[in-house]
């Protein structure tokens, strides 16, 4: 019952997310919706790691790798957007796959610290390797996205791309976790030792999830780069990951729709209240504190419990 409702709710939210800005047809709202989508995709990549009980602070770094890869490949190497977009996911996924077995030897706090340092190193490389990444000035004049020769210059067309991508990612995660992968992942989070004793290679699965989350983070980076047509290193720092984590906590980190809901609630704020950015930081922090104390399942948890079910995973 709850499961069906949450599915209907999810689809309705996604359709509303796409249609409302298109119907209002003002660039500002379309712009907000695109930002929500990009943040939500990064937040989903954080969610994947939370799903196996680990917090990775390198996700914005992976987003950055995707953004730079996609920007440089399309601008300088003449790679078509479709391929560059795929590579924007594949390259960070590959990097995560290589460092994963090293970082993943640690868990919990140590893993958080290592991914924090790893994320910082990625940003440092963007800053220092000026000949390739343009240093603090970043990269500009990134060509717009184009699908099958159709250039997505109008924000509304870019929103459609974002919404479709977000839906595909959410659907893929939903299907994957509803099946055998979900069984393994739940066991990893709850009792890894027992899961291993039943013959499951926990490290390999954790690396798989890490790699997958890097893939998704990279895709969000590609969208970000081609939408703004300009990127610089500071956009991919530690605080970007923390914001994505906040979206999870506020939306409800137990639920696949949690990160998206969190993005819907929070991502527009800095754009709407531009002069109030500093106050917003304080507000974010206080909201996060209060949620951690009073509403550990996030707003989606609140809604679901009002609907009469327990927080159903």
């Amino acid at each position: 019952m709850i499961r069906r409702w949450s599915f209907v709710f999810s689809v309705a939210t996604l359709i509303g997310y796409l249609l409302i800005p298109l119907l209002i047809n003002q660039i500002f709202y379309t712009h907000l919706a695109i930002l929500i989508g990009i943040h939500a995709i990064l937040a989903v990549s954080v969610y994947l790691m939370l799903k196996i009980g680990q917090l990775s602070l390198a996700q914005a770094g992976f987003m950055g790798i995707g953004a730079y890869a996609s920007a440089l490949l399309t601008r300088d190497a003449g790679v078509p957007f479709e391929l560059a977009f795929f590579l924007a996911g594949a390259i960070p996924a590959l990097i995560a796959g290589v460092v994963g077995p090293l970082l993943m030897r640690t868990k919990g706090v140590h893993f958080v610290l290592l991914t924090f340092a790893f994320g910082e190193v990625i940003v440092l490389i963007f800053v220092e390797w000026t000949s390739l990444f343009g240093g603090n000035n970043g990269i500009s004049a990134i060509p717009p996205a184009s699908i099958l020769g159709l250039q997505l210059i109008a924000p509304s067309s870019f929103l459609i791309l974002t919404a479709i991508l977000l839906s595909i990612i959410l659907l893929c995660c939903h299907v994957a976790f509803a099946g055998d992968l979900g069984v393994v992942v739940e066991g990893l989070e709850r009792n890894e030792a027992l899961q291993s004793s039943l013959g499951v290679n926990a490290l390999a699965y954790r690396c798989l999830i890490f790699s997958g989350s890097a893939f998704i983070a990279g895709l969000s980076g590609s969208l970000y780069a081609h939408y703004l047509s300009f990127i610089s290193p500071e956009a991919f720092g530690f605080w970007t990951t923390v914001n994505a984590l906040i979206l999870n906590v506020i939306g409800g980190a137990q639920f696949l729709m949690g990160p998206f809901l969190g993005a819907l609630l929070l991502a527009p704020l800095p754009e709407i209240f531009r002069e109030w950015v500093h106050y917003q930081r304080v507000l974010y922090g206080v909201a996060l504190l209060l949620l951690m104390r009073g509403l550990p399942q996030g707003f989606l948890g609140l809604i679901l419990s009002r609907l009469g079910g327990r927080g159903n995973r």
């Binding site: 919990g108 706090v109 984590l245 917003q280 930081r281 974010y284 922090g285 996060l288 504190l289």
Partner: peptide, 22 residues
């Protein structure tokens, strides 16, 4: 609660930063 405390400390960091910016 290691993860909870960690997220709480992030919240504190954001609040302190924001307060200083104001």
């Amino acid at each position: 609660d290691e993860l909870g405390a960690m997220i709480t400390s992030l919240a504190l960091a954001i609040i302190l930063q924001g307060a200083v910016m104001i």
